[in-house]
Design a protein around this nucleic acid. Structure first.
Lengths: 250, 250
DNA sequence: TCGAATTTGTGCGTATGTATC
DNA sequence: GGATACATACGCACAAATTCG
């Protein structure tokens, strides 16, 4: 690569990106195939592959094995409502009610009993290696994977009660607040810490995208007055979703 | 790759990631070189390269040409409180920027009168090209740039009042809620939308980092009952900060 | 100061498996 | 089934940056 030039795979990626942004390659259309790129740009297979990888990492295109590489739609990120504040009186002019629907999708979950890591122990204010019930979720909306979630509950609270398993029994899948109420624990406040970090390979494999795509991570802890009763990490693709908080101002 | 297995480059990446997370490979230490990975894991050059690329995309390591691939330090992001809910009813929570420890710092600002873009007009529910007061902020904590902010207020509300300029006059720098109260507008709720996107060159130049580094973007709108009175974008480096909401559970 | 060895980053050609059409 | 396309994988070459004797 002579001085001052950029790598061939970036030159190809830049040209294809420009065509996408200019609308020459519209959403849902197929990118030139790897073999086609090789001929069109006079580059090797490797360069054509690397160029496609760049656009995939940037979220402009997605590869479908056996079919082709397609330009992705880049819709305005959808909002996920994280608090249900309503102004008192009158019909609410806000749209959170609709965003709430986004959580009405389907989900899969699996629960396992584990020992608390030091990080989780600190969040739940228990001792490391204390037993916790760990539940992993994959939420979908309209069949599309939307959110990964890992939840931890101290077994000291729920062990040997009907709500020990979050998704089993009469209150299965009813949420932390209702389940805890059933064993006389009043959940009355929650702390949510919102951050963003690159997605891990295991996460992007489930939610779509490639390793490194930005994820929104919500670390949520429910409290019964001052006592933590559940903590969870919610992992959400940052390019497709935003998180909305509606708060009163005192 | 037989059914049920994962690609070799992910197997290698997973193993190296585990060593980083377990502390076997501490920050600032060198990862095994590509040639070394090839021998250690019995894989090809391509696989070793791809594995390193995964870890680089995930932000765990950074490559230095000619020198090696090094484990990055990952400092725990600091929290920025965005809601001052107190179970016992403590001090008034608005204008966290000043009352909260994490925001004890300095800021610069500059205000200009502008015409509302269509996006801002929609957020403030005014007509495009209506006049707005636009104020740009750069917040610092301990001298470190922490947050960029751009705020818009409809001049139809504040024009020809003492609070027209957010940072001037007797209530300068006192926050939206107090300033609006001075002209008999009761700000009683706020919506914050948290998202993440790659930082633009202009933003990373002011906040540090390189273009493409993830930024947390909070789109905040203050309302007087259902009327928008101010909207702002807060732009925060995602690798250094998280945003904390403390909420009651109904 | 010089030069050799190492390491990353880029690039090439090829082969194979598997998904889709 | 055949053709096409993507994804993974192997082996190699070379330039640029760094390290070290």
């Amino acid at each position: 690569m002579p001085f001052g030039e950029q790598p061939a795979y970036l030159r190809v990626a830049n040209d294809l990106r420009k065509k996408i942004l200019d609308g020459v390659l519209a959403p849902h259309t197929r990118l030139p195939s790897q073999a086609r790129i090789r001929r069109d740009y006079g580059v090797s297979d490797t360069v054509a592959l690397e160029a496609r990888k760049v656009l995939m990492a940037e979220g402009f295109v997605e590869g479908r094995s056996g079919s082709g590489t397609y330009v992705r739609e880049r819709p305005e990120p959808r909002s996920i409502a994280r608090s249900g504040y309503r102004p008192s009186g009158g019909p609410s002019p806000f749209r959170q009610e609709q965003s709430d629907e986004s959580f009405k999708g389907t989900w899969e979950s699996i629960s396992t009993q584990e020992s608390a890591s030091s990080a989780i122990a600190a969040r739940l204010r228990i001792q490391p290696d204390d037993k916790v019930m760990c539940t992993r979720y994959l939420f979908r909306t309209e069949g599309e994977p939307m959110m990964l979630s890992v939840s931890w509950e101290p077994l000291a609270l729920t062990g040997r009660t009907p709500v020990m398993l979050p998704e089993e029994g009469p209150l299965g899948g009813r949420g932390v607040v209702e389940r805890m109420a059933a064993i006389d624990i009043v959940v009355d406040n929650v702390v949510e810490e919102v951050g963003s970090r690159p997605g891990l390979a295991a996460e992007t494999a489930e939610l779509g995208g490639v390793p490194g795509n930005a994820m929104l991570v919500v670390s949520r802890t429910f409290y019964a007055s001052d006592r933590p009763v559940e903590t969870a990490d919610l992992i959400i693709p940052a390019d497709r979703y935003r998180i909305t908080y509606h708060l009163p101002v005192k």
